[in-house]
Design a binder for these strands. Structure first.
Length: 114
DNA sequence: AGGGTGACCGGAC
DNA sequence: AGTCCGGCCACCC
């Protein structure tokens, strides 16, 4: 439970990804005000508190791939959660041209309260 | 202190 | 379309 202040910020940003859309690790880092820290986003998602709802499955690599190895338990779970919200996964991968979240800047400023 | 480690990224072939 | 490679940077020994 010892948190780094950055984690909460990342989790909040991930919570803004709309159902049926996805974002990349780097994109989340940028939106969270942490450019260059895509890897930190991945790590933080492994530490989401159980009582918090964070749609971690909507975060993918910059090429649309699920970050976990194909066929692994985790990738199967992520894939299932995505398809459950009508995001098509093919070969461990999602077409970003169709499903990538494109946040409206004004709305972001509002929700993140800078 | 300093080196290794990632749920990463972009460019170069 | 892949694969490779260097860069990245907070975190953890």
């Amino acid at each position: 439970m010892s948190e780094h202040p950055q984690y909460a910020k990342i989790w909040r940003t991930v919570q803004l990804i709309p159902l049926g859309k996805v974002a990349s690790y780097g994109q989340i880092a940028d939106l969270a005000g942490l450019p260059g820290r895509a890897r930190l986003v991945g790590k933080s998602l492994g530490f989401v508190p159980k009582d918090m709802e964070v749609p971690w499955h909507r975060v993918l690599r910059s090429n649309g791939q699920i970050a976990f190895p194909t066929g692994s338990e985790q990738s199967q779970k992520q894939s299932g959660l995505l398809q459950q919200e009508d995001v098509a996964v093919f070969n461990n991968r999602v077409k970003l041209s169709i499903f990538q979240w494109q946040p409206d800047l004004a709305e972001m400023l509002w929700k993140l309260e800078y």
